[in-house]
Amino acid sequence: MRRRFIAGLMLAAGLAAGNAGAQTFPSKPIILVVPFTAGGPTDTLGRILAERMGRTLGQTVIVENTTGAAGTLGVARVVRAAPDGYTIGIGHWSTHVVNPAIYPLKFDILDDLEPLADIATNPQLVVSRKDLPANDLKGLIEWASANSDKVTAGTAGVGAASHIGALYFEQKTGIKLRFIPYRGGGPALQDLVAGQIDIMFDQAANSIPQVQAGKIKAFAVTAKQRLKAMPDIPTVDEAGLPGLYIAVWHGLWAPKGTPKDVTAKLSAAIFEALADPEVREKFAALGQDIPEPAQQTPAALRAHHEAEIKLWWPLIKAAGIKIE
Rank of each mutant, 00 (worst) to 15 (best):
P231E: 09
P133D: 11
T173N: 05
E308S: 14
D136F: 11
I164Y: 06
H250N: 08
I316L: 01
A20I: 08
A319L: 02
K176Q: 04
Y182M: 01
G39L: 03
L252D: 07
L116A: 09
A247P: 07
L113N: 14
G159H: 13
T60V: 12
A17Q: 13
L286P: 04
R183H: 09
N65Y: 09
A38K: 11
F201I: 10
V151E: 06
Y182T: 00
L167E: 06
S94L: 11
G184V: 09
A160I: 00
I216A: 04
A275M: 12
P133L: 07
P187E: 01
D149P: 09
Q212C: 03
A17F: 15
T66A: 12
P209I: 08
G154Q: 06
D112K: 14
T42F: 00
L116I: 15
Q23W: 05
A144D: 02
R80L: 10
L32H: 07
V79I: 11
P277S: 07
A307P: 12
K265F: 13
T222K: 02
K317V: 06
V63S: 06
V61S: 05
L311C: 01
V97D: 03
A38F: 01
L244H: 12
A166S: 11
L73M: 13
P26M: 05
G68C: 09
P277W: 11
P83H: 12
T37Y: 06
G58M: 07
T121G: 13
W93N: 02
D108Y: 14
G195Y: 10
A275G: 05
L227Y: 15
E272I: 06
G154Y: 07
G174C: 04
V126D: 04
E51V: 11
I199K: 00
T72E: 12
D198E: 06
L116R: 14
T67S: 08
Q171H: 10
P242S: 06
Y86Q: 04
A300H: 14
V193G: 00
A20E: 09
K176V: 05
A213W: 09
G40Y: 12
L244E: 01
P209R: 03
